[in-house]
Design a protein around this nucleic acid. Structure first.
Lengths: 155, 155
DNA sequence: ACACGACGCGTCGTATACGACGTGAATCCG
DNA sequence: CGGATTCACGTCGTATACGACGCGTCGTGT
């Protein structure tokens, strides 16, 4: 079983793949333009947002929050650090951990700009939808994510 | 108007962003493992799939089909070409166009492997869902994509 | 015929994005 | 208590992914 090659599902998978590609592309593009002044790309903004709402966290925890591999996040933090927007420090409890946090100087600035850190194109797009439509989008994504998660046990 | 900062929508946008990230990550990972023997990454597979179902197409058309910028696709075709799986040729009608097609040698091989070119993790995930759930996923994505598309006119 | 703008493509620089590997620190265990 | 294992992180190599730039080609207008 499960080897039954269902053309309908495969065609649906293809169409979903294209939708995901286009959504990803649209979400990536405006960010670079919108935040060009702040020099923040979409992933950088996500990392800064996660850091801002905490007072320092390990790289591992940061990876979990943004759903990216540690090597990717490490590179992002590198650039953030080079710009003086984030700082690395060794945890005093466990010297394996790296404590990553936004710099105090930036923290003040972020406090005012925090609302602008949210994904604007996405927010605007959602605003154009009705409440039931928004729920449909959210539900569809959560369903897909759940179905994709390997560890999830589907009784 | 439209400047009313709705916390609900922003929170929803954040959650949707996380869902999209995780979906993307899951879809990217298994492909590398699944098609490691064929040396095909997910974008390479998409390009090959598009090429296979046509007898040569321009880079522009290829970009449109996979929703990627021409510079990205150009690089992917470079690697495909280096492996001898795709070929470039100049169009005789319009010398600006580059005619991209799968090599005849690979075409024979692809004919047998074509079914395996579909996104397997996605297909399997969708198989685990019921028909109404699949429709909910599809509908949610289409809604989001439509809402994100800038050119779309929303009466 | 011929500048000239529009178009398609290749390339470069930069930023993701990941797996694999190495290093050092903490933990486990005999 | 010392070796093995595990863990967190940094780094490397490769592959996306994009905008910007430049080149050659086409279409247009005069």
């Amino acid at each position: 079983m499960a080897r039954d090659r269902d053309p309908d599902i495969e065609s649906l998978a293809h169409s979903i793949e294209l939708d995901l590609n286009e959504i990803r592309q649209i979400l990536r593009r405006p960010h670079a333009a919108e935040y060009a002044r702040g020099q923040l790309t979409a992933p950088q903004r996500m990392v800064m947002q996660a850091l801002f709402f905490s007072d320092g966290m390990s790289l591992k925890e940061l990876c979990r929050q943004v759903s990216l591999s540690h090597s990717t996040v490490s590179g992002i933090v590198d650039r953030l650090q080079a710009r003086g927007m984030a700082a690395r420090g060794t945890d005093s409890e466990d010297r394996r951990l790296t404590r990553i946090a936004v710099t105090p100087a930036v923290r003040q600035f972020m406090q005012e700009q925090a609302p602008r850190l949210t994904a604007q194109p996405l927010t605007e797009a959602l605003s154009r939808l009705s409440q039931p439509q928004r729920r449909a989008v959210s539900r569809g994504l959560r369903l897909l994510r759940k179905a994709l998660e390997p560890k999830t046990d589907w009784g």
